[in-house]
Design a protein around this nucleic acid. Structure first.
Lengths: 119, 119
DNA sequence: CATATCACTTACTTTAGGGTAAGTACTTGT
DNA sequence: ACAAGTACTTACCCTAAAGTAAGTGATATG
């Protein structure tokens, strides 16, 4: 996975933000272009890798798998693979992942309100 | 302000995400490293430019002003300047900005819970 | 008359994230 | 023997976001 140069100011500032600010911490976890969309698709139930791929046609395989790995590493998503050929892999939200649904809904609600010009 | 090459796939995908997904839309607005921190400092009342600068020592002036301009352009923050010398400029949350506090609080709550290992 | 204050600007560099395209392993079906 | 299906990997390139450092304008103050 992409190497990071942990001596850069960018990294230092990011760490600072993530540690000082729980909101930055959240955004670090769900901040990729495709992550909210992946989470949305998983919120309605487990999906196989290929199902996600078809559900989100614009995403490339590299990005899809990269985001899935990150979500898994952050404990938001659980990956389950059956040792068969062809492979059978399913992804689903962990309890932490499901636990963020109220937050996600709050975000979506504000977003929709703001789009519509409320406030 | 930074020019964007709107013909790139990155831009297309971003537009797709922002339009399809209200959560991505929200993150586009509050997704800079410093934006949540700026919003946090403004949530307790108006601040002068210099007060923000002092309150967030690690941010550079370029980033601070850039994020403030974006927040203003997105209607989250209001800028008020008195035509005096030296300048006297204050920033405060707009009603839309204040309207996102419940959402921000939901995010912070989940973030803190997750940091502490809840779920 | 030089320096300080405030709120920015501007030109340039670096880096992390995203994108493209091709390849891998393993087995079943034709 | 060859293609098809599934779930990835890998190597390389491009762009937008972030950072660095210096400069601007208008006035007041010593």
């Amino acid at each position: 996975m992409a190497k990071i140069k942990e001596s850069s100011t960018i990294q230092e500032n990011k760490q600072y933000a993530i540690q000082k600010c729980p909101v930055s911490y959240v955004m670090e976890m769900i901040g990729g272009y495709w992550k909210p969309i992946i989470i949305y698709h998983l919120s309605s139930g487990d999906k196989r890798y290929n199902e996600l791929k078809k559900a989100i046609p614009a995403v490339t395989e590299k990005m899809l798998i990269q985001h899935l790995k990150q979500l898994e590493a952050d404990g938001l998503v659980v990956r389950e693979s059956k040792p068969v050929v062809p492979p059978f892999v399913t992804y689903r939200l962990s309890s932490a992942g499901r636990g963020m649904m109220p937050m996600i809904n709050a975000m979506a609600e504000w977003g929709l309100d703001h789009m519509k010009g409320k406030f």
